[in-house]
């Protein structure tokens, strides 16, 4: 049975969503992917952790790399008891660090 499933995969490669800067996500999609409520997203926007395009929530469009920002922020809050402003600061510093490492 398991073998049959694997064969199916061979014929139908899975197509994932690439988390890059081209695609844009709605508020609903971001909530679904990250498994969190719209209120949490709004808190993160207020903190400057997320910067969607669009003026009203229905028009908000998030860049895909913001999925990762949300996920890291949630883990930092849960695992290190960092509050939201602290998580936002850590994320900015981590991204700066990555950029510097990339240039090395």
């Amino acid at each position: 049975m398991a073998k049959k499933r694997d064969e199916n995969y061979l014929f139908q490669p899975l197509t994932g969503m690439i988390l890059d800067d081209q695609a844009r996500l709605s508020l609903e999609e971001l909530c679904e992917i990250c498994g969190i409520s719209a209120e949490t997203i709004v808190d993160m926007i207020d903190e400057g952790l997320l910067e969607p395009q669009g003026r009203v929530p229905g028009e908000w469009r998030f860049r895909c790399y913001e999925v990762r920002r949300v996920q890291v922020a949630l883990r930092l809050q849960q695992d290190l008891r960092v509050n939201l402003p602290g998580a936002a600061l850590i994320l900015d510093l981590l991204e700066e660090l990555e950029e510097l490492r990339r240039r090395l």
Binding site: G16, M17, I18, L19, D20, I33
Partner: peptide, 13 residues
Amino acid sequence: RIPKGIMAGQSIR
């Protein structure tokens, strides 16, 4: 499926 143009460090969900 590895999408065309994917860059190092990017993730596929």
